[in-house]
Design a protein around this nucleic acid. Structure first.
Lengths: 247, 247
DNA sequence: TGTCAGTATGTCACCGGACGAAAACGTACT
DNA sequence: AGTACGTTTTCGTCCGGTGACATACTGACA
């Protein structure tokens, strides 16, 4: 028990650094309102499949003429695109920057073979997740399950770290186990099992399987959990991280 | 010959719309300098694995104090992250927005099985590409080839549409063929074969195989090209686009 | 037909937000 | 110690960003 407590504590202390954002410590007085507003509008455009000027202005709580001017700026530099019907969607330049930044998160492409193996083992949908903005977890990549009824795509979605399996894995809150399983955290009748992937500086991502609760029960969870933990350990070794046995 | 020319012309007229950006027609006088500057700094941060304040300011041609203020704004809203060594990298919020926007480009996740099949057929690295910013093509997803010596990852990279196979495919410039192959366009001794994927409104993406020229020769190119065209036609049907036979 | 509500776009007087030169600070090196 | 360079802070200044208002357009309804 004592030895089990000691290994957990250093992992937990490393995890907040992985989830913490440098943005918290930036003096607010030096912020630039105009840019804040434009970025908020950009986020609003991305949060919807397609959005009108007035709805965007409403959600960002800006006068319409202000929103139009800022959205025009975003449009000119191709961070948003405006369709013929007047609605805005994310632009090619934002996608480019996002894909470039994502491909630099080396855990995401590295996890692809492991995701395929997990799907092969379980038939459930497999995900790799990374820390998201404002202390969330971001589903960054997936391989779909093979069952006729399977989990639908969550790529691009953020979830809270509290109360979710992926969140717990990213935070290192495994309670002495190698994986964590949570039922009905994000959606009813959906169970997720997750394990963390560690790099030099601590936890950098998580592998997870997500599927309907009726297939993820007391007989399958330990089996799938062990497979996820095994794959996560392999990725951890590949990234030069410390596996639990070495912590 | 005449019938072969007629089908090409309507396709070519549809393709510029796919590559054009609505940003071209936005009045420049309504742009917001401050936001333009911040977005340029964001792009500079994404263009490098990691970058210092002074280098970022240099590349954006801004005074250091101005760059610091704008980067602090980007940092506060988690579009960039500043490490302990002072260098900036892309932040979680940018990744989130980028992944969300990318996952809304339905061609990218839809292409995953096709990419795997192409790798299975050829052993070469397979990509799905979409229109990028400023008339470029963006490599948006990949499945690595199986050869010991294979093409390294280009995901997140943009290439010119002129003179490249993917660019030609995205532009619809196939010269009556179903695929296009180009040698040494982006890098020496690398050959790419590509075919367009069409949606309702025209070309939305391209499938491609990329590999060393010594393995992509006159005997393999027609075989791989036909496989790519077949997969692209399947995706086109899935997206409700018009296949060449229907144009 | 007219009326109304909502959306999108343009205008311009105004003021405060963004600017950047200069100073101060921190670090590494000789 | 001095030097060089990158980073951060300061603050007077001005011009860039603002938003209330006007206008045009569209769709729904009586």
């Amino acid at each position: 028990m004592t030895s089990a407590t000691a290994p957990t504590a250093p992992v937990a202390s490393a995890a907040p650094a992985a989830l913490g954002a440098s943005g918290d410590r930036v003096p607010e007085s030096t912020s630039t309102r105009t840019v804040d507003r434009a970025l908020d509008l950009l986020a609003q455009v991305c949060a919807a499949p397609s959005i009108s000027l007035s709805e965007c202005a409403r959600r960002a709580d800006l006068p319409t003429s202000t929103a139009l001017r800022l959205l025009r700026t975003l449009e000119r530099s191709q961070f948003v695109t405006r369709a013929a019907d007047g609605n805005y969607t994310a632009g090619t330049r934002l996608i480019h920057l996002g894909v470039t930044a994502l491909s630099r998160e080396s855990v995401v492409p590295l996890a692809a073979p492991a995701l395929h193996r997990l799907v092969g083992t379980s038939g459930e949908t497999a995900y790799v997740s990374i820390p998201g903005p404002a202390g969330t977890a971001l589903y960054a990549g997936m391989v779909e399950g093979t069952h006729p009824v399977r989990h639908a795509g969550w790529v691009g979605r953020t979830i809270p770290v509290d109360g979710t399996a992926v969140g717990a894995a990213l935070s290192g809150r495994l309670r002495g186990e190698q994986y964590v399983a949570v039922r009905s955290a994000v959606e009813p009748e959906v169970t997720a099992i997750a394990a963390p992937i560690r790099g030099h500086a601590g936890i950098v991502g998580a592998l997870s399987l997500v599927g309907p609760t009726h297939r993820m029960d007391d007989s399958t969870i330990p089996l799938y959990g062990a497979a996820i933990a095994l794959e996560a350990a392999g990725l951890t070794r590949a990234l030069g991280g410390a596996t639990p046995a070495e912590v």
